Amino acid sequence: MMSKDTIISEASDYVRELFAGNSDGHGADHTMRVYHNAQKIMETYPEADAFIVSLSALLHDADDHKLFNTENNLNARLFMEKNDLPPDTIEQICRTINSVSFSKNRGRSPETLEGKIVQDADRLDAIGAIGIARTFAYGGNAGRSLADSIKHFYDKLLLLKSEMNTEAAKDIAQKRHEYMTGFLEEYYEETGCRHDQVIE
């Protein structure tokens, strides 16, 4: 097996190839931000397995059902098998990846510290200024109206602050949450629209 640093570098290249041309907010740039978010969170949790966290973050969207018609983490597994990772490591990373998705893990916190970190890292990229940008990028690509994209804030984005697992992520999420509520208030003022839900 190659060195762990080399595998991480290879994974970065792999996701750039995998997501080439993606413009709906789930591209390689998103993956790299999740990776860097995970590195930042790990500074507070030195006991976490850095290799598991890093590779899981890089491969977390490699089989996203919105983007790929694969089963059983096929794209992630192909990369890891090609790089001769031990079977138990492959399974651990796949379990971590599978614990990340918001829609598939509502109200459930990952069992491992590594899973908690990667889930938080992904959710942080769904809120704040970048979360706003990604929401409208995805909405435009999917043919959503502005109203539908605004509804997404209430269906998901405004809920994420209270669903973070780690204290490090909670601190970052608070600031990003406040930025989103400020954006919504400005949006309503500029459009003359009002929403019947209270922004907390």
Rank of each mutant, 00 (worst) to 15 (best):
S3E: 09
D5P: 00
I8M: 13
S9G: 09
S9I: 11
A11M: 05
N22L: 13
D24F: 04
G25Q: 10
H30G: 07
H36V: 09
A38D: 02
T44K: 07
Y45W: 09
A48D: 02
A48M: 05
L55N: 09
A57N: 11
D61L: 10
D61W: 01
H65A: 02
K66T: 01
K66V: 15
F68D: 15
N69K: 08
L74F: 03
F79A: 13
N83E: 05
P86Y: 06
Q92F: 13
R95Q: 06
R95M: 07
P110M: 14
E111P: 00
T112K: 14
T112G: 15
G115T: 12
G115N: 07
V118A: 02
D120I: 05
L124D: 08
A126I: 10
A129F: 15
I130A: 08
I132R: 15
A133M: 13
R134A: 09
R134V: 08
G143V: 04
G143F: 11
L146G: 12
D148E: 10
D148Q: 07
S149Y: 07
K151A: 10
Y154L: 03
D155H: 04
L160F: 11
S162D: 06
E167M: 15
E167A: 11
A169F: 01
K170S: 02
E178T: 11
M180C: 12
G182K: 06
Y188I: 10
T191G: 09
C193E: 12
E200N: 11
E200G: 06
